[in-house]
Design a protein around this nucleic acid. Sequence first.
DNA 1: CGGACGATTGAGTATACTCAAATGTTGTGG
DNA 2: CCACAACATTTGAGTATACTCAATCGTCCG
Lengths: 245, 245
Amino acid sequence: MAYVFNAFAGDKPSVGELLSTRFPHFDAAVVSFTAGQEVVGEGDPTENFFLVIRGLFRAVKFTRDGRRQVFAFYMPGDICGLEPEATHKLSIEAVDRAAMAILPRPACRLQMDVDPRLNAALFEGATRALTLSIDHMLMIGRSSAEERLAWFLTMIRERVAPPFGENVVELAMQRQDIADYLGLTIETVSRTFTQFKERGLISLPRKRSVEILRPDALRRLAAADRDAQSIPYPEPARDLAAVAA
Amino acid sequence: MAYVFNAFAGDKPSVGELLSTRFPHFDAAVVSFTAGQEVVGEGDPTENFFLVIRGLFRAVKFTRDGRRQVFAFYMPGDICGLEPEATHKLSIEAVDRAAMAILPRPACRLQMDVDPRLNAALFEGATRALTLSIDHMLMIGRSSAEERLAWFLTMIRERVAPPFGENVVELAMQRQDIADYLGLTIETVSRTFTQFKERGLISLPRKRSVEILRPDALRRLAAADRDAQSIPYPEPARDLAAVAA
DNA sequence: CGGACGATTGAGTATACTCAAATGTTGTGG
DNA sequence: CCACAACATTTGAGTATACTCAATCGTCCG
């Protein structure tokens, strides 16, 4: 997940908390968006930071001929819009009906100068976002379709309810978003979902709802552990140590 | 270029300058490395920042089964090692005979608290690094082999001597590094080099030396402009406006 | 000169792609 | 509430791009 501040990730107070403390009226700047609506576009001046209040957003970039890459999904508690240049290099769009708190940059900067905690939190967050993007890039550059989808499902699951996640994950984004996030086509994503279903790794109660039946197997696939691919069905053992390793 | 501070990129004083000002004896901590030598490994504690003095370094990560992704190349003036977690998530290795200034983190942090300029420079740099990684990811996720290599050559050329670059670029890294940087195999990289040569886009005086004969054509390929692919040979016109657009 | 390594080239293949059609889902108006 | 339209997703068939495995070529050193 490139470019994401996760409210759960820090041992320090979360950026969201700090902001809501320092800007007691920040909810006055909350704006709602409908599905597909653009918050900022590529080339727009970077005037604000954004704190996700409700729903799901995505950060995207387009090539000139219309290909699209999704760089991140932002969930409630995440901050985005921290691009350093004068203009945004990514567009931020609402995936579904969602809401953002809009935080003017000058005010944030002033607070940063005054409050070392906010300062440190933002810096830590920015560098952590970089770390989070590493896995994403490794996946895109060096993994098969099934590894990418397994990684995606594992990551989403663990973000929704850390540290272990629920076994049923609601996917607010549509298949095209997943495809563009993973650097695949929508057809390949769909086929891989079907394949996972047939292998008993997941079930699909509804199209946008995934029940993860065998989280360990999925996690091993995601870790690019080639052995996992040769284990289609059994494997009842837990394997949490492997995650930490 | 993920994770890179480029000494040329900023309108502010470069991080390198600030560090050498604030740490007048930082050159006492300069360490030399031979080709392939590891500066820090994945999992090592994050005790220092690093400033490249001479030569070329790469940031890499391995999957469990040995696949490798190169995330960045660091040139003199670049800073690396700014990972926020307690341990490094990437390994940093010397590509050739190279040297790093080793900057203890606690000292840097102290200076950051005291000196808002250093602080701002590092923050700007960290977020800029994020922006720089965007193109890399877009390439890896959504481009063909020839687009990736065209982008790589264009980027290297412009980094070596901004803003336009020399027409002859010395590649200190070997083909495997390029392949792992672009998410391709070494064979595909090699074939694409050959193809570019046959199309008259480049020439290869030596294996590690690329002469860029048609920078505009290469740049258009890199920009994922599909029209460029249907223009194999002629095209004498300049096209700098397209870069800015 | 020979060995080691890096790079290129060749042949065949697999994975994910494209184009196309069918199916499923959602939302809207009658 | 149902029917229909619009859209999202799945499935199918064929193909292209980049991969794998293998051999050759070139270059740098000892």
